[in-house]
């Protein structure tokens, strides 16, 4: 079994028994998709909600609204079917609190909203999420059963 690393503003897919892992999610959001029948998983680590005027090809994984369709395409090529795909989300924290909240500081919640909108567009149901709060997260998505391991520095490990 291999663990495929997904970087920041990056995405990838894996099939059973492999899994996908991304580290140090702060206000970024990890979008974990899984087709339980085909056992195909996809993971994106997005940084920003929406690209204003259409992202260049290499920047599609950076934004919620372009990463979701890109990931779905890649999963379809490996035999996943959109109607079977479910989603789990983690991240979207607010790492710092400042007096006088700027837009930058609210980026976590805005990222989560944008991911949900992008998933709704493709009618992908969200089965579980661990979003918001003020802690960083590392996640690992199993291509075998779609379970999502969420590890934080302060609260240990849980499985979604």
């Amino acid at each position: 079994m291999n663990v495929i690393r997904v970087g920041m503003a990056d995405l990838n897919i894996a099939a059973a028994p492999d899994s996908l892992r991304t580290t140090g999610l702060g206000s970024c959001v990890g979008i974990a998709l899984f087709d339980p029948h085909a056992k195909v998983a996809g993971l994106a680590h997005i940084m920003l909600p929406t690209s204003a005027n259409g992202a260049a090809e290499q920047n599609r994984p950076k934004y919620a609204n372009t990463a979701v369709p890109m990931l779905l395409e890649m999963m379809a090529q490996r035999g996943a079917e959109r109607r079977r795909i479910i989603a789990k989300l983690a991240g979207g924290a607010q790492m710092f609190t400042f007096a006088g909240q700027s837009d930058l500081m609210r980026i976590g919640p805005r990222n989560v909203e944008a991911v949900k909108e992008a998933l709704a567009l493709f009618t992908i149901p969200i089965k579980a999420e661990d979003t918001g709060g003020n802690c960083g997260r590392t996640i690992e998505l199993s291509g075998q059963d779609g379970s999502l391991l969420v590890r934080t520095a302060k609260q240990g490990v849980m499985t979604l």
Partner: peptide
Amino acid sequence: PTPPAIAVDMAGAILSIGLIQLGPAAD
């Protein structure tokens, strides 16, 4: 400088806020 904000957490999660500031324009 603005007053400092502070957090104890994973380095990647902390630094990401600075990278997001750069995000739309740069990698």
